[in-house]
Design a binder for these strands. Structure first.
Lengths: 191, 191, 191, 191
DNA sequence: GATGAATGAGAATTCATTCAT
DNA sequence: CATGAATGAATTCTCATTCAT
């Protein structure tokens, strides 16, 4: 999810695995998981249907890998020096980075949020997502326990769900929703 | 021997209509719209597949009626005397009622949020939802314009997305998510 | 198929059997046998679906009875005094009567011709139709054997198929097709 | 190991396309369009149901292609040098060729006539058929205007419907109906 | 690795027919 | 006699997945 150099992009392009992943992300996010067909993904990736099954076990495995590899890219970001310590400036930076991350990967987050609202599939996926969420949740609790006497867990949790709410509203209508203004308001309310 | 009276038939119809609607809500919310099959709904309702089509034109019509009749129930609630005026006490009451409404209809709101995150289908449905959303958005703007000098629209928008975020978190894990505590925090932050 | 008096029509109207038959003829001829549903027939007849099954064993039985009762009405017409003797004037009258019969029962003949081109159903029906056809075929052979030395059977057969061809063209586009002019030409060619 | 060449694939496609078309013609003509199921066609073609949809968009598209490709084969025949000029010998040839064409494609013509007697479907198809029919109608009018002073249009129209009548009688009972003898009689009557 | 023809399970929907009332 | 709710088999069509090449 972090910005990629041109060279990295070229490598991904050459790599069939990455090509398929990108095509699938686009098709999934445009059509929704169930309406997205393997055929459409293959056409988007400009390869054959069969080849997808050389790289991925199933349509569901493809979805899982998209979601998880997206999260994996974030992991480093939220816990850079593994100390989980946020200054006030870093808190602002943290929130603003979030916006940037979402803006640069609208397709991904569109898919992400539509997926977490589906029961049936995805028990495994949910666990992994939980795991990841813990990481940045911890950072937030730590921050609030230093700034906000009463109930840091609750504060962190509210911030998390608020950001989810914002992200959902934004990916649903990126042209209209004033995500930056909203984030500034959040910063004011949670500082 | 003699055919059933019109009254008897009307009752049968009303009952079955409700039974199908309930079954569909459960199956839709557990599986998501696309994975929920008419077969599964029929089995849940303990009727035949064909009967569903005596009561609803199509799978999509069934979804529409579920979503819209759910919203219709809310309409009266958010605009009781049609003035859209909220006192501070009413603001608290408003938020707490929201929780109650969500708690009592977890399946419905699970479905509702999974639907608004789907692009493919449902243009008509989205319009109707927008219409409804406007109603309570107006009330909030009105409230904030009396309490919060700076930017009532932004404030109302943030509250709306925050509540959506909370609702989504809650319906995804009703056992764990401390919705009441969260709402209290929201009240504090937005008053 | 012969014109009915007003009283006869009223009797038919009162008679459910006849009502159903009429409704079915209309719906069959407008939609074709397979696309015509029992529901539509019931609606057209302004009765319930179930009642149709009090009078007819099945949809197919209904079709059979329509076709056969239509033919039965013709039987008397073509063999009034059972002698099968046609003068030249009667020959003209015969052909002109045919036109009249078709014009007055477009729906019936539309259905009739669409039915005889379907293999699957209707073995029984075909036999009955054959039987009927024989009747007026005989009359024609008799006529031609008195007027046309060479091959009366062939002449009669050609006239029959020619008339079928005309009838089909007419029922397919009654507004445009100049059936009367055509019949006059036929009279000229076969006299 | 290596994928099939484009040429191989094209051959497979062409073959299967033809196999499906043949099977569909048989099943359609035996059962009528509505009673002919995709399942039956697949079974006749000895392939899976799904494959039919790799080659044809829908059941209706399949019917259209059968009918239209059949007509296309005729186009060249009736308008060889595009002048629409028929000598008397050519007129005889024309009629005799017609018989041959029908005899060699009984299934096709059975289907053709059952289709033009159906209202429901097929508006597009009917238009195309009209277009084609015009072509040979023009040739006939031209012929009769040179041979028959009175009313060439009527003459051409009667010949057309007569031939339709003959064709229908023949395809309904190819074993019994003396099509050749009939055609000779037609030639005599229309020359 | 790569292709895409082929499969078959399953989806939504229709509709003739039954039957309790 | 009459009703229409209810059934379930059959239909068209889709699509993830397989596999010969």
């Amino acid at each position: 999810m972090s910005p990629r150099t041109k060279k990295q992009l070229d490598e991904i392009k050459k790599d069939k695995h990455g090509i398929i992943l990108n095509a699938a992300l686009i098709v999934f996010s445009e059509n929704g998981y169930h309406s997205a067909s393997i055929s459409k993904i293959a056409k988007t990736a400009e390869i054959s249907k069969g080849l997808i099954y050389n790289y991925f076990e199933s349509k569901e495995a493809l979805l899982n890998e998209i979601i998880l590899s997206g999260l994996a890219k974030l992991t480093g970001f939220f816990n850079p020096n593994n100390d989980g310590f946020l200054t006030e400036d870093e808190f602002d930076l943290f929130l603003n980075s979030l916006t940037k991350i979402i803006k640069e990967n609208i397709s991904y987050w569109k898919l992400y949020y539509s997926v977490i609202l589906q029961h049936s599939v995805l028990e495994l996926l949910k666990e992994k997502i939980m795991e990841f969420t813990q990481g940045y949740f911890t950072i937030l609790i730590n921050y609030f326990s230093r700034h906000n006497s009463k109930n840091p867990e609750a504060e962190a949790m509210l911030l998390t769900t608020t950001l989810d709410g914002l992200a959902i509203a934004y990916v649903n209508d990126p042209e209209q929703f004033p995500i930056d203004e909203m984030i500034q308001l959040v910063i004011k309310k949670f500082k």
